[in-house]
Design a protein around this nucleic acid. Structure first.
Length: 679
RNA sequence: GGCCAUGUAGCUCAGUUGGUUAGAGCACAGCAUUCAUAAUGCUGGAGUCGGUGGUUCAAGUCCACCCAUGGCCA
């Protein structure tokens, strides 16, 4: 590669929020970033990957308050945890910083000042909730009340957890201050707005180019049609963030300083050298600036962020790559199903290469969700990595080691296989470059299939029995080893651990892309050791189980101390289909009698509107049979009949309560008819 | 409610500008093989391409509506 071919690439991943642990959903993006980063390095480009913890905002302030700690202590502990997770997942970032840093304060203030001087900041007076007792403005999360839409009580001032509606805190019904319990009043408050509309023309042009995936352009178009409204970048104190210069009591909104955290992390890596920073961020920079993000934060990265950069006299991103969300077994990650898997829980059980490979095999350049199918995960990794790729080394190495003093032959057999393996490079590189990792993997596995076919075809295990065929065997296995070497170079961005073991096994320096062209000949190798063990489904079960344990542990803290929920916590989630299997019907009690010899049972005759059922119900302690006759109730109509000492019970009546005299059978409202289904 | 994306074999996915009989891997069945971490090779069965209607000589591919899933916004 000549100096002029060498690209300067600055890469970022989205900033994880410093208020929770990293999970395998985050890892989709970080692994995607890492594969692309490693690929570019393997090709010899000058790559820098910087990111940071997103360490500001009300949720962090609240968490610190609830845990009797300071925000500083909380984010410091979280940063250590996050960074260790990333290192252990073999992410090859150059710097992981925090948005609560001197560098970020410096960058935020610089950008804000430039925007202000450029006439891109407006000061407007808006109505905000104010706590008259604590005499302070209330952030959204410091107000609770009833959702204006679905009337669910005890919701925060930004969104309803029950119906998902987002609203202004001023719209809450019966609002209450979290701080004092007082009813807030509305009060005028000055806020600072970024006039993003000033950049309408620039943004329309910029987003119509190659910087954005085509499917994102449709989405962005919709935002333009809605009009670019002034963006409120300030928050009243108390707020956890940076104070706005010359605006006492006003703080930068977390989403203002978060993306600037990319720049600040870079500045931190450069030890504060702003000239070096400008080489990447200056208006005329020729370096590439590439962001990897999830679709949920696309709006900030495709509109707010480029506008801020433009307004402050910096360059705009080369590309903003969006990905979808992680699904596990076709559904959203679920805590109760044990599919909300923390990065650490995964690492406690498995090496990163497995998950890295599986994600790579499914990632593409589109904004699609990625489904982690746990059964498929096991099958895919075992079949591809163990059965196909590493097996090539395993089946050739023995011959070389035992019969040829661990030395590869001086020449390859007379065929074009090695040539083919090298020329696949162009297409595989193109796939990596365009982030079509699944295509890259498909093409790599095709090469592996060819290698295995070749070995099966040549049958070295038969040839070795003939003395005069020994050189042939050495050459066949040398080719096998060299095909394996190329496969590992192709896979090096994806499975760094296997690549490292292969370099040691083959006695080689660190592989680079250019090593694809030259076969190893007359070269001594080491004894083959298994590089990766087969994935067992019991490991997956253990991860799922451990993830359920995590849930239990976190539930203990939040569980109510007394009351029905404390005595009998809510069961694991079920699907609608599970529920639908239970056939509940309205029934009329036409007869109710004491059962001779039974302490707790009443014998009920239930009418389902044409069909009568005999049911034994354990409600004698709470009900006099004569008061039940003529009442309607609800029964499970498709419960398997059960033989009891006093007869067969053909269903079950629904009742609530712990027992004894505290039992309450259900009744439908007036008008229900016997036999109606409850659903 | 509006919008965006997705829906192809049991599972995970390819299917370029509409053009022969819709492909691959895994799983399954049979055969071969035993160098290899029970790994590998060959052969085979398996699909009303979410549904309905339309455009066309021709639709998995284009259009309309509907359904399901995921998401964004209100």
């Amino acid at each position: 590669m000549t100096a002029s071919d060498k690209r300067d690439i600055l890469i970022t991943s989205a900033l994880p929020y410093a208020n929770g642990s990293i999970h395998i959903g985050h890892m989709v993006e970080y692994i995607q970033t890492d594969i692309w980063t490693r690929f570019q390095r393997l090709r010899g480009h000058n790559v820098t990957w910087v990111w940071a913890d997103d360490a500001h905002g009300t949720p962090i302030m609240m968490s610190a308050r609830n845990n009797n700690t300071t925000p500083e202590a909380l984010i410091a502990a979280m940063k250590r945890e996050h960074e260790q997770d990333f290192i252990d997942f073999q992410l090859s970032f150059d710097n992981f910083h925090t948005t609560h840093s001197d560098e970020n304060k410096q960058c935020v203030e610089t950008i804000y000042k430039r925007l202000f001087d450029g006439g891109h900041i407006a000061v407007k007076t808006i109505e905000q909730l104010f706590d008259p007792e604590a005499s302070m403005y209330l952030p959204d999360r410091f107000v609770t009340g009833t959702c204006p839409k679905c009337k669910t009580e005890d919701q925060y001032g930004d969104a309803c957890e029950s119906c998902g509606t987002t609203y202004d805190a001023t719209e809450l019904l019966n609002p209450k201050s979290v701080v004092s319990g007082a009813t807030p009043v509305t009060k005028d408050s000055e806020q600072y707005f970024f006039k993003i509309d000033n950049f309408d023309t620039m943004l329309r042009e910029w987003t119509s180019g190659d910087h954005i995936q085509p499917e994102m352009r449709n989405k962005i178009q919709e935002w333009f049609e809605g009009g670019l409204k002034d963006w409120d970048i300030s928050r009243n104190e108390p707020y956890w963030g940076f104070e706005i210069p010359n605006a006492p009591g006003k703080y930068f909104y977390v989403w203002m300083d978060a993306p600037i955290g990319y720049m600040a992390s870079h500045l931190n890596l450069l030890n504060g050298d702003t000239e070096a920073l400008n080489k990447y961020w200056g208006k005329d920079s020729t370096a590439e600036l590439v962001h990897f993000i999830g679709i949920d934060i696309a709006r900030f990265h495709t509109l707010c962020w480029p506008a801020m950069l433009e307004g402050a006299g910096y360059r705009k991103p080369t590309a903003v790559h969006c990905h979808g969300f992680l699904m596990v077994d076709g559904a959203k990650m679920s805590k109760s199903r044990g599919t909300f898997i923390k990065a650490r829980t995964y690492l406690d059980h498995l090496q990163p290469d497995y998950l890295r490979y599986y994600y790579a095999a499914k990632l593409n350049h589109k904004v699609e969700n990625l489904d982690l199918n746990l059964e498929d995960f096991v099958a895919r990794v075992n079949s591809d990595l163990v059965g196909k790729i590493v097996n090539i080394a395993s089946r050739c190495a023995g011959f070389i080691y035992k019969n040829f003093d661990a030395t590869l032959s001086a020449q390859l057999p007379d065929n074009t296989l090695f040539q083919e393996s090298s020329t696949a490079a162009a297409s595989i590189a193109e796939a990596y470059e365009n982030r079509e990792f699944s295509r890259a993997i498909r093409e790599i596995i095709e090469q592996a299939d060819k290698a295995n076919q070749f070995i099966a075809d040549q049958q070295p295990w038969n040839l070795i029995k003939q003395e005069d065929q020994h050189q042939q065997v050495q050459e066949i296995c040398t080719l096998g080893i060299n095909l394996f070497k190329n496969l590992v170079i192709y896979l090096k961005p994806v499975v760094p651990d296997i690549a490292k073991q292969t370099e040691a096994f083959l006695n080689c320096d660190e592989f680079s892309w250019s090593d694809l062209e030259q076969p190893l000949l007359n070269h001594k190798i080491n004894k083959f050791k298994p590089m990766i063990t087969r994935l067992e489904s019991k490991s997956i079960d253990a991860i799922v189980e451990a993830s359920k344990e995590d849930l239990k542990a976190s539930n203990v803290a939040a569980a109510p101390v007394s009351g029905p929920l404390a005595d009998d916590p809510i069961s694991n989630q079920i699907s609608f289909d599970d529920f639908a299997r239970v056939d509940l019907r309205v029934a009329t009690i036409v007869a109710a009698d004491l059962v001779e010899g039974a302490d707790k049972l009443l014998q009920l005759t239930l009418d389902l509107g044409g069909e009568q059922r005999n049911v034994f119900a354990g409600i004698k302690s709470a009900y006099d049979p004569s008061t039940l006759i003529g009442r309607q109730t609800v029964m499970v109509a498709n419960l398997a009949p059960r033989k009891m000492r006093f007869g067969v019970s053909e269903g079950m009546v629904l009742a609530a309560g712990p027992g004894g005299s505290d039992l309450f059978i259900l009744s439908p409202d007036n008008g229900a008819q016997a036999g109606m289904r409850v659903k």
